[in-house]
Write a protein that binds this DNA or RNA. Sequence first.
DNA 1: TAGATTTGTTTATAGGCCATAAGGAAACAT
DNA 2: ATGTTTCCTTATGGCCTATAAACAAATCTA
Lengths: 242, 242
Amino acid sequence: MATQGVSRRERVRQATLAEIRATARRLLIEQGPAAVTINAVAREMGMSGPALYHYFAGHDDLVAAVTVDFYRELTETIRAAREAYPREEPGRRLLAACRAMRRWAITHRAEFGWVFASPIRGERRLDSPRDRAGQDFERAFVEEIAQLWEARPFPVPAPEELDPSIRAQLETYAQAAGLTLPVEVIHVFLSCWIRLYGLLCMEVLNQLDFAYSDLEPMFEDCLRELAPRLGLDYDAEAGRGA
Amino acid sequence: MATQGVSRRERVRQATLAEIRATARRLLIEQGPAAVTINAVAREMGMSGPALYHYFAGHDDLVAAVTVDFYRELTETIRAAREAYPREEPGRRLLAACRAMRRWAITHRAEFGWVFASPIRGERRLDSPRDRAGQDFERAFVEEIAQLWEARPFPVPAPEELDPSIRAQLETYAQAAGLTLPVEVIHVFLSCWIRLYGLLCMEVLNQLDFAYSDLEPMFEDCLRELAPRLGLDYDAEAGRGA
DNA sequence: TAGATTTGTTTATAGGCCATAAGGAAACAT
DNA sequence: ATGTTTCCTTATGGCCTATAAACAAATCTA
């Protein structure tokens, strides 16, 4: 048996854990974030509320676990999309990753909105599973940027052009994240990231509904504008498909 | 008397309404959004919970009223900052408005975060006080853009360059908002708006904490990049002061 | 000015949520 | 077979929303 060392009990426990998270997700999708409550999830599963406390320490814990699921799924989707192109074309891979991110976001609005609108109040611990999943998500892009930079360096600001405060912040970040890329490269990357992710953020938070009903062309516009900054050519065709 | 037609009762009522909203705001600042609850506000004021239902239809209503307060204050701040420069310099006025927005946002993090992270779930009615306040906020910028465009037209894409879908969406928006500016101008405006507001959005939602501790230089960077697109020259000095 | 009305407030109530405690039942181990 | 661990239940306390009913006070009106 492949599951040799795993007791039956443990298997059942894992199944229950998965069912809880799946139920929470279903409630989120069907009834919104406020409906994802310990009691509601339990009721939905035919259990009594307090039973769930044997699986999660509390509401926050459940929320965090679900968030991690979403991060993982999104990251996995992005990684898979990347692999549609060979390693020799990091530019195409990067664009595919960006588009996969938006596609996941708009086909999983509730989940994407939950991930970053819900639980970031207050401080974060850098070692929580939640943050590890977030870092992993980010890494999917950083890896590709690093490949791109090595394969075909894109223009970056001269050292003296970069604001000293930004430089200092990014040095701290690079060190904490274990990045070996030059700070100027990180700056270009994050500048692009902020624009792309920020657009998605506003879209999912319905901050742009007052003027737009479909932001896909704006997203493609954003990619078209960002592509040359990373020294890669924008491929309009790939945006329409999938 | 200036308050001639207003009964004493009405005055007291307005005072109570104001106190309720002020208390809600205080709770928001001191203890976070979750603490802004009908009961907590009432308790804080020495009243019993149900009494508040004579002033607000329910929790959502209170939330909406507080949100409107924030929108108004922010809008007022922006309008005031604009007036620091004469009408003949719409460029400076616009930059001042942008900086005032960020300044208000970071000196009122809880309020700013509340405004656009909290209550936008679900649909919106276009005629609610909440949305009217939001439109008013937006107008503070649109007005300035219009002035700028008339005084010194900035470059806009040629009609055939604008994506048809975007054009259609913006035509709908322009009509609904009663804007007479060309669609291409609106497109440039909103493109800039998305970047600026999106950056602020991510900052206040702590989406960039993983790398940055102080986003002011990034905001200034954004302004510096946006300024030429609106045909105005970036004034670094004004950013440092205040 | 005395009664009727409107308005503001309180207590009581119903239902939901989070979280803990205490007890019972089932699965496991030896 | 029996003790132990694990899981699940009911009971409880405290806070929340929201409504209903009862009471007090200010205001209006005849």
